[in-house]
């Protein structure tokens, strides 16, 4: 089956203080229908910008400089804006934003906001839309009378559920969820994780999950791309990436995470140095100043993302070289 989404050579830039900085720098990936594809990385790695590029919701100072975003056989970047808005946005691709408090209009009841979203994008009557909204609410586990609540009257978990309900309103083929559980308490987060998993397993939804939290990625995703400084450094199934990480960054990041095994006390190991800034790009491999395996070539050239083993991609000179030694 053809992939649902193919991203090729995507490059997105922002203009900041008269300078153009590249935030997504040549990203390629594919995702299949009915799967959850995670884009993971630390703040400023470009994961949100990548999500916004796909949803065509970039702020005005951002531009897609090159690349293709092929969704269901159509290159979205070749589409006219009003065409995209009419045919794709909300109906085919919808987004759950980071920070559910600011994503809702505070002075309109949540039910009315969902009804408005439906009637704006589809030719549905108000009463049909309201009926659908109440079905959606029960599907995400909020009681229907909450449709009449204002956003501030809902708890953080309920607002997040309402956001998800709204994103599902027109049965989109792809939902992009940007940090859907960040800022929620653990027990509420576990409920939202359960809900998102149900959407995939029971309803067959395709989802892009954007998250800095690797333990949430391990819970929810089938496939995963690790981003660093605007590029994908490693990509593959979550089992491969968590079981046998190949890139030094992924290896280090997993070692810095407290979630691993709670039964045994482990020593967390941080990554030396500071996360990179887009304002001062690094030549060669972006990770080289923080990498214990960095070689001469890493400071000079940028590694490409190559298929290291079937379905497991990595961009690292050290990995390519050491694996050659092992097989010989």
């Amino acid at each position: 089956m053809a992939p649902l989404l193919t991203v090729e050579g995507l490059r997105t830039t922002y203009t900041v203080g008269g300078r153009e900085v590249t935030v997504v720098n040549g990203v390629d990936f594919q995702m299949e229908r009915g799967k959850t594809f995670a884009i993971a990385g630390e703040s400023g790695c470009g994961k949100t910008t990548l999500g916004l590029s796909i949803a065509q919701l970039l702020p005005s100072n951002a531009r897609i400089r090159s690349g293709k975003i092929v969704f269901d056989g159509v290159d979205l970047l070749q589409m006219r804006e009003d065409d995209f808005r009419r045919r794709i946005r909300w109906k085919k691709i919808s987004m759950v934003f980071q920070g559910s408090m600011s994503a809702f209009n505070p002075v309109i009841r949540v039910g009315d906001q969902i009804v408005e979203a439906i009637t704006h994008h589809e030719t549905a009557s108000k009463s049909a839309a309201r009926e659908r909204a109440s079905k959606l609410f029960s599907a995400v586990g909020i009681s229907e009378n909450r449709l009449y609540s204002y956003p501030h009257e809902l708890s953080g978990g309920m607002r997040e559920r309402a956001m998800i309900a709204m994103a599902l309103a027109s049965s989109p083929d792809l939902v992009i969820a940007d940090e859907p559980t960040t800022g929620l308490d653990v027990l509420v987060q576990a409920q939202i994780i359960g809900l998102l998993r149900k959407l995939r397993d029971d309803l067959g939804r395709s989802m892009i999950l954007i998250s800095h939290d690797l333990s949430v990625v391990a819970e929810l995703a089938d496939e995963c791309a690790i981003m660093y400084a605007g590029r994908i450094v490693e990509m593959g199934s979550v089992r491969r990436i968590f079981g046998n990480p190949l890139h030094p960054y992924t290896m280090k990041l997993l070692g810095a995470f407290p979630g691993a095994r709670l039964e045994k006390r482990i020593t967390l190991v941080g990554i030396p140095g500071e996360p990179p800034s887009f304002l001062n790009p690094i030549t060669g491999c972006r990770f080289n100043p923080r990498c214990e395996h960095a070689m001469e070539v890493c400071r000079r050239e940028e590694p490409r993302l190559v298929e290291f083993e079937r379905g497991h991609f990595v961009s690292c000179f050290w990995r390519e070289e050491t694996s050659g030694d092992n097989t010989r």
């Binding site: 653990v186 027990l187 987060q189 576990a190 409920q191 994780i193 359960g194 939290d213 690797l214 333990s215 949430v216 391990a218 819970e219 979550v238 089992r239 968590f242 079981g243 997993l254 995470f257 979630g259 691993a260 095994r261 709670l262």
Partner: peptide, 13 residues
């Protein structure tokens, strides 16, 4: 409810 780094582990509520 605390997620682990293990793709086979599942949080429960």
């Amino acid at each position: 409810a605390t997620p682990r780094l293990d793709p086979d582990a599942r949080v429960t509520v």
